[in-house]
Simulated assay, not measured.
Amino acid sequence: MGKSVCVIAEFRGGDLRRVSYEVASEGKRIADALGSDLCAVALGSGIAEKAAELGRYGVKKVYIVDDPALENYLAESYVPIIADIIRQCDPAAVLLSASVDGKDLAARLSARLDVGLVQDCTEILVEDGKIRVKKPIFAGKCFAWNEWIEGAMPLISCRPNVMQCLTLSEDQRAEVERVDIPVPETRSRFKSMDLDTSGRVGLSGAEIIVSGGRGMKEAQNFAMLEDLAKLLGAAVGASRAAVDAGWRPHADQVGQTGKVVNPNVYIAVGISGAIQHLAGMGTSKYIVAINKDPDAPIFSKADYGITEDLFKFVPAFTEEVRKLKSTCS
């Protein structure tokens, strides 16, 4: 059996994030193809029981460092600890999520371990024992395939909400091994995290997103998108034009200078489809475009297009969804 494949788990608020399950599932698939086992690394505070849950996704052993000082991600403390564990494990490949923290961690690990990194991957193949990865380039207009030279350890960050999350066994628990590595002194301190407490669905992990653009005309008109999103259990996003106009906060921006999302359904309302916006949502499973301009670029990317005045279509569509939900309830 070859070297283990290693995944880096991500915790927030003491709980494993969904992206950790996605990366573990992908890691298991790669480990099977290489004829090796799957292990994981997890840092946090009071995480031993939660870390064992990774066994449901094929992880055999989780190496943890459990310390109150590691409750929240801080590069100065996380990077040297994880790098030390990876050196000791000497894995065949390392996978982690291309989340905000994951991208930061991956870049620093690449420099510290002197290994090649490919960020934000959307597909991983194993061919003749070699790992190849696919990632979007040029704002998502095309894709590049990357591979490593013989003997090099691949370091790969996976785009969230792209990889399949597959449970192998609900009862399976991973072996948890505590690693005795001291937490280094740092020059910075974690003070607080400003999370959205409005109760709305977050953009990053949303399965359905309803986004509005310049065609919404003013901030008040986003209320109709909020109504539709509430019925669909969706998140509300916005184009850069809508954010620049002050209609929505920057946290809602989807695009090259905002958030990169990958929902099952992306509904673009009054969005023309500039390349910067497409870079942030172009890998969505299904794209629905609503725009009165039949020549809008968004239609070239859409799976379903509605050429109609959004102020007529969205309220009518929302009412139909409401009727369907009341019938099914």
Rank of each mutant, 00 (worst) to 15 (best):
P263A: 05
G282Q: 07
G258K: 12
S272K: 06
S110N: 03
A51T: 10
A251E: 14
P249Q: 13
D67A: 14
V59R: 10
G282E: 01
D303A: 07
A106W: 00
C6T: 12
E218Q: 15
S169H: 04
T122A: 10
I156G: 02
Y304I: 15
A206F: 13
A48T: 13
R159T: 05
L310I: 12
D15F: 13
Y304S: 06
T167G: 03
A75Y: 04
P297R: 09
E150F: 10
A24H: 09
R240Q: 08
G116P: 09
G273H: 03
G55N: 06
E53R: 13
V79T: 15
Q220W: 01
G246W: 07
K135G: 04
A107Y: 04
E71M: 03
Y78V: 04
A242C: 08
A251L: 10
A268F: 06
V269Q: 04
R29Y: 02
A83T: 11
G258L: 11
E185H: 09
R159K: 14
V133P: 08
Q220L: 08
L96S: 05
I86Q: 03
V176L: 02
V118W: 05
G129M: 10
G55T: 06
S45F: 13
T186M: 05
V321W: 10
M216Y: 08
S239V: 11
G270P: 06
L168T: 01
V118L: 09
N291K: 07
I131T: 09
V41N: 03
V118A: 04
K292I: 12
V179H: 07
D244T: 11
F190N: 06
G255W: 05
D196H: 08
Y266K: 14
K323R: 14
L225Y: 04
F222H: 02
H250Y: 10
V314R: 01
V236I: 14
E123T: 13
R200C: 02
L95W: 03
G282W: 01
L278N: 06
H277T: 00
S36V: 07
S204G: 12
D171Q: 15
G305K: 05
I271V: 11
I81K: 08
M193N: 01
L155S: 08
L228R: 09
M224C: 04
Q253A: 10
E226I: 10
